[in-house]
Nucleic acid binder design. Structure first.
Length: 225
DNA sequence: GCGACAG
DNA sequence: ATCTTGTCGC
């Protein structure tokens, strides 16, 4: 059971207004850095499902070299915060942290089923978790929160097009499967957009979502793999 | 003021 | 996110 050491810890029992203030306070702490792929052995996929006022966070640790799940955990509890576009982390992080504490060991990279910097205040769920743990994190979302895809996105697997918001490239629309709707990848923390896209594409071998996120979604929704 | 809006 | 069967297309 790893002991999570939270950097920049803060209260979670806050109002939407206070939540926005916290995001503006932490957003400047997001760092972009190249990912040392040779040092990446495990990537954790995270997802949270909701049913009957209860949230269930699931974590699946995927070994990139063995191409297999090496650990998993689930945590369920009361829904702590309503769903408010732009404030998703205040609803999901309180469930994700206790789930992570159940792992045998923490992963090298965190992959979230949400946005990172492709957020109105450049501080989506992937950034929030990344900054709190001060670890590499990226967001792989199924739809757009803010911004628009510029240019044409090819139909071939691996095609990409920038996701731009207010003149700033905040992410990339990435086609992980031919003729299938793309996923939207963005920086969470300590990774570059380029590397985040590479990792997402590399791990999306069977479904449009990368294996870690796909499996975490399955575990969260069904309660088992 | 009106519409958009991760999960 | 969740409610839910079959159906069209690759």
């Amino acid at each position: 059971m790893p002991t999570l050491d939270l950097h920049h810890a803060h209260a979670w029992d806050v109002s939407p207004t206070e939540a926005v203030a916290i995001q503006r306070e932490l957003a400047p702490l997001v760092r972009e850095a190249p990912l040392d792929f040779d040092a990446v052995r495990t990537v954790a996929g995270l997802d949270v499902s909701v049913r009957d006022d209860r949230v269930r966070a699931a974590v699946v640790v995927y070994d990139v070299r063995a191409k297999a799940v090496v650990d998993q955990a689930i945590w369920e509890g009361p829904t702590p915060f309503p769903y408010v576009p732009g404030l998703l982390s205040f609803r999901e992080v309180p469930a994700i942290l206790p789930a992570l504490e159940q792992l045998r060991a923490l992963p090298d990279v965190y992959m979230l089923d949400a946005q990172g910097r492709a957020h109105p205040r450049r501080f989506g769920l992937a950034c929030h978790l990344g900054v709190l743990l001060d670890a590499p994190a990226l967001g792989v979302a199924k739809s757009i929160l803010v911004g628009r895809v510029e240019g044409e996105l090819g139909e071939a697997k691996g095609s990409g097009a920038p996701l731009v918001h207010k003149g700033e490239t905040v992410g990339v629309a990435l086609r992980t499967r031919e003729r299938v709707k793309p996923v939207y990848v963005s920086v969470g923390h300590r990774v570059t957009l380029r590397d985040a896209g590479r990792l997402a594409l590399r791990l999306a071998v069977k479904y449009k979502l990368p294996q870690p996120t796909h499996l975490a979604h399955r575990l969260s929704y069904r309660g088992e793999l």
